[in-house]
């Protein structure tokens, strides 16, 4: 064994590179094979017709033509759009107000509140899904009970089972989960605003609302816009909550693109079984890829713009 040690100490460069390649090789390989290469593979599969059982069959652009004529795909996209408009707007509005008040309060209580607000963010999506399914439950749900307290009899209304309300019902779930995280980000950003900026406003007797609107928001506009865009993208990509809450139902009323793609290959509980379609799923994936890459470029262009100086 000693000659190995001798060899290594006499050849530092060899020692260094064998250390580097030794510890990097396998993780790097896994990364390239299972996380980078599948991007290329998904292009390849998108040109195939494959049920996962027999061999794949090359069908050219047929998956794409089918996709462009697929009403379910467009319906899913419209649902995504609906969520992408409502969720970020509501989440950030609430987070801003909460962050504004949290940043001002300097007591232990406020620190605890900050930590508490973050809790929904760390809970598993299964628990969140089931929790909100129970809140929306027709027979014993929290929501209907609250309506009952105000004298409105919801008569066992199933929020997640009604084609008209199901999608809208998803919005509070996403908001509930994400507010904590953005409250955190905004609180940190607001704490960075120098006190001098508030002085003249306070002397003039400005209200909290005015301070929030005229001073705080413009000062952290950079953080707000990046957060908003981040949230929009995340809402677009997310499908596990929808999977657990509604499985895309009822009758496709809450179907989102990510879930649509997922359902092409994997069986979702409570939906009709279908023969897997790896090729079609891959085509959907490629279209989503293109949409998201374009969105990323647009975002990068926009956020290059004005940074406010103090």
């Amino acid at each position: 064994m000693n000659w190995i040690k001798k060899f290594y100490s006499n050849h530092p460069k060899f020692a260094k590179y064998s250390f580097i390649y030794g510890f990097l090789a396998i993780p790097l390989t896994f990364y390239v094979v299972f996380y980078l290469f599948p991007n290329i593979l998904s292009v390849y599969y998108s040109f195939m017709k494959w049920s996962g059982l027999s061999d794949p069959k090359f069908i050219g652009l047929q998956n794409y033509t089918r996709l462009f004529n697929d009403p379910f795909f467009y319906e899913s996209l419209s649902h995504n759009l609906f969520l992408m408009l409502l969720v970020p707007f509501i989440t950030i509005s609430i987070a801003l107000v909460l962050a504004f008040f949290l940043a001002r309060g300097k007591s232990k209580v406020h620190d605890i509140l900050q930590a508490l607000f973050f809790v929904p963010n760390i809970i598993s999506s299964v628990v969140i899904g089931l929790l909100w399914a129970f809140i929306y439950n027709g027979d014993f749900g929290l929501l209907n009970t609250i309506f009952g307290l105000f004298g409105v009899d919801m008569d066992g209304f199933w929020w997640l089972g009604n084609v008209n309300t199901a999608l809208l019902a998803l919005v509070p779930v996403y908001v509930w989960v994400n507010v904590g995280f953005y409250t955190l980000i905004f609180t940190n950003a607001i704490k960075g605003i120098p006190d001098s900026l508030y002085e003249s406003a306070i002397l003039d007797g400005a209200t909290e609302g005015q301070i929030l609107r005229k001073i705080v928001i413009p000062m952290i506009m950079g953080v707000i816009s990046v957060s908003a865009l981040f949230l929009v993208l995340m809402t677009f990509r997310s499908y596990d909550l929808v999977l657990i809450l509604t499985g895309g139902g009822p009758g496709g009323a809450t179907q989102v693109v990510g879930l649509y793609m997922f359902s092409m290959v994997f069986q979702i509980l409570g939906t009709a079984a279908r023969t897997p379609s790896y090729g079609y799923a891959s085509a959907i994936g490629i279209i989503l890829f293109i949409i998201l890459i374009i969105a990323k470029f647009i975002i990068d262009k926009i956020t290059k713009s004005d940074d406010i100086e103090y």
Binding site: P38, N39, S42, M261, F262, I286, L288, F289
Partner: peptide
């Protein structure tokens, strides 16, 4: 930079 959503099936 990659969206990640499209690698589900090939992965």
């Amino acid at each position: 930079f990659l969206p990640g959503i499209n690698i589900l099936v090939p992965q």
